[in-house]
């Protein structure tokens, strides 16, 4: 019983954090057909921004830091979209991939100038710092908070896509960009908007994990590997797929750690291979036309 509660909370919190980041990546791909490697940079900048705002203190500033992390990433995203991505909508996939990879490397270097090469750590706010007893097991409150944020982000994205004019335009722009443009919508700014939201989510994911991880250069590359697996499993472009993919990866990590400890890392890739063998376009994706 004890173990089950811990496992469920561990799985869900890992999944929730992956989902927040993956949702941003898959949203951008869905709307713009661009695989954005620099998504990892936005995540890292979000986490580092938290360390800057928090410094050594904690308390109420944590909530400000969380927001600042997401906003810093969104501003970085805006800059990248306007200066680089906007010129690449009609380019080959490979060109886009190389360009966004170049952006990742540049951001990594700038990041080192700003935040240095060492690692930084921050504390969760006091109210979330301790554990809480659930069914005999002690679960960290911060894990529950992360799960809550993941659920809230999922809900907000669903509302945005299904219930708002922006979401409607977005879906229309994927199907038929020309009609949307002739309808009087500024396609360029619509795309910028999506890209900024994607970056915001990456930054939020990074900010969210800051108290759980050491913040160091290199976390940009490691997250991009993980979220690529998540969105590939779920289906590129599908937000619900990203949620499902994140859950599967979280579950694979937990089951792996529990039962095949020395194979835990491979289990993630194995999950991906199995899913792609059966459904090459991902669980909730649609085959490319």
């Amino acid at each position: 019983m004890h173990s089950l509660v811990l496992d469920i909370a561990g799985t869900l919190s890992a999944a929730a954090n992956l989902f927040v980041v993956a949702a941003g990546l898959t949203l951008v791909f869905g709307a713009m057909r661009i695989i954005n490697m620099a998504h990892g940079s936005f995540y890292m900048y979000g986490a580092f921004a938290v360390t800057t705002v928090l410094g050594v203190g904690a308390g109420w500033r944590f909530w400000l830091a969380l927001l600042a992390g997401a906003v810093v990433a969104a501003v970085a995203g805006l800059t990248v979209e306007v200066t680089v991505i906007r010129r690449l909508y009609d380019a080959e996939h490979l060109t886009q991939l190389l360009a966004t990879y170049a952006v990742l490397l540049i951001f990594a270097d700038i990041g080192q100038r700003i935040w240095g090469t060492g690692y930084r750590t921050v504390n969760p706010p006091p109210v979330l710092a301790s554990g809480i007893s659930i069914a005999g097991g002690q679960v960290p409150r911060y894990q529950l908070f992360v799960i809550g944020v993941g659920a809230a982000v999922g809900l907000a994205l669903w509302l945005m896509l299904a219930r708002t004019r922006f979401g409607w335009l977005l879906r229309a722009a994927v199907q038929d960009p020309e009609s949307v443009a002739t309808g009087g919508t500024n396609l360029a700014w619509l795309r910028t908007g999506v890209f900024v939201i994607g970056a915001f989510l990456a930054g939020l994911g990074g900010a969210l994990i800051a108290p759980m991880q050491s913040i160091a250069p290199g976390m940009d590359v490691s997250i991009i590997v993980s979220v690529f697996i998540v969105v590939t499993i779920g289906g590129l472009g599908s937000v619900a797929g990203a949620a499902l993919g994140a859950l599967l990866i979280g579950l694979a990590q937990t089951l792996g750690a529990e039962f095949f400890a020395s194979w835990a890392a491979s289990l993630i890739y194995l999950t991906m291979i199995v899913v792609l063998a059966i459904r090459p376009w991902g669980l909730l994706g649609v085959p490319e036309r």
Partner: peptide
Amino acid sequence: QQWPSLEATNISPNLSA
């Protein structure tokens, strides 16, 4: 015995186990 991968972004699953 837990062996989190080097690029593990979240060690919660290993820690829970």
